[in-house]
Design a protein around this nucleic acid. Structure first.
Lengths: 335, 335
DNA sequence: ATTTTTCCTGCAAACGTTTGCGATTACGTT
DNA sequence: AACGTAATCGCAAACGTTTGCAGGAAAAAT
């Protein structure tokens, strides 16, 4: 079955394609009666303009590009869902790309989206992104760009983030408040800004409480379960046993959690644990894990809303804005 | 910055656009020397053909549409990731839509993808889909379609599935084998084929072991945690305590798991639990949950591979094939 | 009756690419 | 010398839409 085109309608009505086009877009030049006839036939044949042809004219599609490190990751899956939700209601579809935390692939994806003439891009950068030329060329091309969670600091674009530093500060301050003294931090990749800030919040909390920061209690690693597991493992092997752990995110917390259980230590009595993100999993383990609620779905939604705004107000070259969403310390059984 | 077009190159070289086009596609009509000049300039200006213009000619994009019930669901997030992986390497991008288990939205998404002239569609249907006209019109339009996991039975399309019935049969048979006798089934929506088949496998296993099937041990519900929780809750309130539960999927198993713990019953001693899908979560709770490994990532990959095959071999109108991937019972602490 | 105005509609170009066909040139064959 | 044949290349159309401009007809004004 072929798609009905504007020319098909024109032929059937004995008028020109341009008149049909104008009638459908309610152009004042067109006679009301003609408009009615056109609309009736269009409905009858379920005519929908070919978006490709429109895109060719506008040199722009109605597709929003989304780049995330990993689709599978709870946080991103949820954020994508939020983006899709907003895009759907605004009449856009979303193309989803994953960088797999790989810089080259992020560049390739970005360029592919530019080539595809997406209307805008929502992105969260990979942990290995140390150069932002690809995002700068997005800006240069006049394509609206919004970061969420992990932003590129040296790119002038809007972002939806949380206050990582403050959130971390609050969590660690809470740990100190309930009596923990030897608090370790399982940090993420040093290059990732959000990780730096979480580390900074951790340090600040210790400083404020006049607790000396011990380098051996700060373990750097990745963002996955195995990283938390390994960090805990190496501490145990070095016989350094903290009385609490502030993990850079929930998977890392879970990894540490498992290794602690294997070691026969009790949570929260021997070791307290705080995660970050409020992944579903933290409510399902025993004990449940104290964590910081990071509104992933809302972050996706908000980022998409800003992007749609930028796309549809091309004229108002608004300055990039930064939206900081609230987090919340959720106290559970692990502390 | 503007995109370089084929006409830009033609002008700079003083030749026609058609020659440039042919040179770039290595057409035999074109002089080798010309080809070299063209290729050199194309590289220099980083020329990439405008996919929109190409799409307009072909009346087809290089985008693969993906429709899933929920992006956030572990199984689907993982499958999408697999689809993206294959698509990426084959030079396609993916548009992801979620139906939110809503039939109307699935129809709208499907039509939107048709309008967008996607090259093909990978879909897993919503639990409320009782009509397949929208998928039939995909076929009619000649757009390749592959289902995964949840297929539309009355649509002639390829599918990537698992043997739900056999998997369920094996799991329940295993439960019987290790001594469980009063085995409940927390079933999914009656309309969903995969749920029917899992139920059938459950029944068959009981029959084979000459265990009477008790209607009150079969609880119908949705596919989420709360459904498992509620099913268990109602059993407890009716004072019907099974000695094992076979859940339609892992979230449901987890829900039951929680209610059981709340009731102070011991797993696996008082009640054994078997889930379905091998979601990550099943390895993280205590005790870990016995489940059936369903290769989500591979299912996505396989579906995408079949789809790409169909797209690129338009001529060979191959008959739809059904690929059944192997599942595996993973025995853990809950049984 | 002529001019002006209003109202409606169509022509044609443009977006960037691909491709059938015809045109041109050079070369070898009779 | 006359012709056929490759080897190269360009013209123009096509994909479906939008839009500036021109044009025609009818209505209104002179």
């Amino acid at each position: 079955m072929r798609h009905t085109t504007i020319t098909d309608l024109a032929k059937k009505l004995g008028i020109s394609a341009s008149t049909v086009s104008r009638a459908l877009s309610d152009h004042p030049d067109i006679n009301d009666n003609t408009k009615k006839r056109v609309r009736k036939l269009a409905k009858e044949f379920n005519y929908k303009p070919n978006p490709i042809a429109q895109s060719l004219k506008n040199n722009r599609t109605t597709i929003i590009g989304v780049i995330v490190p990993e689709i599978q990751h709870d946080f991103f899956a949820s954020a994508i869902s939020g983006i899709e939700e907003v895009a759907y209601h605004a009449g856009y579809t979303i193309i989803v790309c994953q960088s797999n935390e790989n810089f080259e692939r992020e560049v390739i994806n970005t360029n592919a989206l530019i080539q595809q003439r997406v209307a805008g891009i929502v992105a969260s950068i990979s942990q290995n992104t140390n150069n932002s030329d690809h995002f700068k060329s997005v800006i240069e091309r006049g394509i609206p760009l919004v970061f969420f969670d992990r932003a590129c600091e040296d790119v002038s674009a809007s972002k939806v983030i949380i206050d990582d530093s403050k959130s971390a500060f609050n969590a660690v301050t809470y740990l100190i408040g309930i009596g923990y003294k030897k608090i370790a931090h399982f940090a993420g990749p040093k290059v990732l800004e959000i990780c730096k800030r979480r580390l900074a919040g951790y340090s600040e909390a210790l400083n404020k409480a006049h607790i000396r920061i011990s380098k051996e209690l700060i373990c750097y690693g990745g963002l996955h379960e195995t990283d938390g597991y390994n960090s805990m493992d190496s501490l145990i092997k070095k016989n350094i046993i903290p009385d609490a752990i502030f993990a850079v995110n929930d998977p890392v917390a879970i990894g540490a959690f498992q290794r602690i259980k294997e070691a026969g230590l009790k949570i929260p009595d021997d070791i307290g644990i705080v995660g970050f993100s409020n992944n579903k999993i933290t409510t399902l383990v025993d004990p449940t894990i104290t964590t910081i609620d990071q509104p992933s779905f809302e972050m996706g939604k908000k980022a998409a809303e800003i992007l749609v705004g930028l796309i549809e107000n091309k004229n108002k070259s608004a300055k990039p804005k930064t939206v900081t969403l609230e987090t919340k310390l959720i106290i559970r059984g692990s502390t």
